[in-house]
Design a protein around this nucleic acid. Structure first.
Length: 480
DNA sequence: AGCAGTCCAGTCGTCTGGACTGCTGTTCCACGAA
């Protein structure tokens, strides 16, 4: 009964959600664990509760600064003071202080990059941890190989013999992602809790187009006609802004979101969307991780996602309240070309490998390439990582294979877009699972009535305006 | 790869079409310039 008591004492709940107890028990027993739970299932409790049973700190590796801040604030609201986010938001002085007293915190959040810094490593090697958590662990696979190589290097650190148990958390993972997680983190016979990936309340629509212009007019018509809140995913920042502008002119409460905006703007837009002041976010794949909005009714993909895993993550943001939601994939022949360009365009090329080698021979720092603008910061970081890991010829093969894997992933996504069979069955199959039954309005090929799932725009908007007016009035009265 | 926008020649149309150009995602951290 100890777990239930701790749950009630620190979190105020009387019972666990599906999966939480099994995962927590395994963590408490000291096993390595992989837990795949849908976001609404309370993943963070899986390390927060054990944090109160252990006497030593829990270290959480998190992919985004905003995610760390959210978790820290959430814990502080629950009354926890011994929590810190060790990241670049800290001044030099604050960082020195946090490092000095690190063993006194109960929860330590950090990024892979910060984790690998020498001073952080030195401190951690001198202290004991009760648990290491890798939050959003699919990032290892999604980002480690060609974007944030430090995600692969956290594995080197995990190989030390005297390490505490590791808990890898994610919402979804394909077989490949699971394999990458196991091997990168050197997990020892992990206990794996894998929840059904299928989300029967998300109905899978798809519309095929002959022509790009048809697609654009379909989108505008659809968004004018149906109710949000919704996310429209695009694969270009510029086009996201153009669409958002068109929507606004048509009287739709929309905003664009991509990594080109500053952190403050992004935070503001995200908050407006969560508060119901915006109906549509027109975004690149920058939008999504850590968004806690339960009532998203639609997720539309204007362009082809680059992997099935990404598609699943993105549509999974809809309908977290369990009510019907619609995911619509828009596809026209040739959409895969843009996806190919976007995913492989920034990979270092063979000439960069040779150039790196040449500079090394001349005793010139390879970072000279970056200063000369010969390749992007991302491409250089990836090249630099692999050149230090493997012989030159191997790096060339590696980079070539990375591009081929990207093409393969896009092809798999394309198959979902083009299939004449059940989209859900195919989708769930990529995650190594079998679909038990097809829900009503399952997918485009099984038959789907859009009107039965989403409401028209006007009926919902009137209601939202009433509610937001009531809220404003309440705020005013409370303010007095 | 492929689309959208711009430029310019041809020839005298306020236009047409071909050539050309630019653009195409995701994060963290640190350092240096202003």
């Amino acid at each position: 009964m100890q777990l239930e008591q701790t749950l009630a004492k620190y979190f105020g709940y009387t019972s666990f959600r599906p999966g939480q107890k099994e995962v927590i028990e395994a963590v408490v027993e000291g096993k390595d664990v992989i837990a795949l739970l849908p976001t609404s299932m309370g993943k963070s409790l899986c390390y927060q509760l054990p944090g109160y049973l252990f006497s030593k700190p829990v270290l959480i590796v998190s992919p985004l600064l905003s995610l760390m801040q959210d978790q820290v604030e959430q814990l502080k609201r629950l009354g926890e003071k011994r929590v810190v986010a060790l990241n670049s938001f800290l001044s030099a002085e604050e960082k020195r202080y946090a490092l000095h007293y690190l063993e006194q915190y109960r929860f330590i959040f950090t990024s892979p990059e910060m984790l690998l810094q020498q001073q952080v490593q030195e401190k951690l090697s001198r202290m004991e941890l009760s648990l290491i958590v890798v939050d959003e662990a699919h990032c290892i696979s999604q980002w480690g190989f060609d974007f944030r190589p430090d995600y692969l290097r956290i594995g080197e650190w995990f190989m030390q013999s005297q390490r505490p148990p590791v808990l890898a958390l994610s919402a979804t993972a394909t077989d490949k992602v699971l394999t990458d997680i196991r091997s990168t983190l050197s997990l020892q016979a992990p206990f794996e809790f894998i929840y059904d990936v299928d989300r029967p309340n998300i109905h899978l629509g798809r519309v095929l187009f002959e022509d790009k212009a048809d697609k654009a007019s379909w989108i505008l018509h659809h968004i004018q006609k149906t109710a949000g809140p919704g996310i429209l995913y695009m694969s270009s920042r510029k086009r996201a802004e153009q669409y958002s502008e068109t929507f606004k002119q048509a009287g739709i409460r929309a905003a664009a979101y991509h990594a080109g905006f500053g952190a403050e703007d992004r935070q503001f837009i995200q908050q407006q969307f969560i508060d119901g002041e915006l109906d549509w976010i027109v975004a690149t794949n920058a939008f999504g991780m850590g968004i806690n909005k339960a009532d998203i009714r639609q997720v539309i993909h204007e362009s082809l996602p680059s992997t099935v895993a990404n598609y699943m993550q993105e549509i999974g943001r809809a309908g977290r309240d369990g009510k019907p939601a619609l995911a619509i994939l828009l596809y026209s022949d040739g959409d895969e070309e843009l996806a190919k360009f976007v995913t492989t365009g920034d990979l270092p090329a063979t000439i960069h490998v040779d150039r790196y080698q040449e500079l090394m021979m001349q005793n010139v720092l390879p970072s000279q390439m970056l200063k000369n603008g010969e390749l992007s910061e991302t491409a250089f970081r990836v090249l630099d990582y692999w050149m230090k890991e493997e012989p030159v010829e191997q790096v060339k093969i590696r980079l070539n294979n990375l591009a081929l894997e990207k093409y393969q992933s896009i092809y798999e996504m394309q198959k979902i877009a083009q299939t004449k069979d059940c989209m859900r069955r195919l989708l769930v199959g990529y995650f190594g699972q079998n679909l038990r039954e097809n829900p009503e309005n399952c997918c485009e090929n099984c038959g789907i009535l859009y009107d039965a799932i989403i409401k028209g725009r006007t009926e919902v908007n009137l209601k939202i305006e009433m509610v937001s007016w009531e809220n404003r009035l309440k705020q005013l009265l409370v303010g007095l």
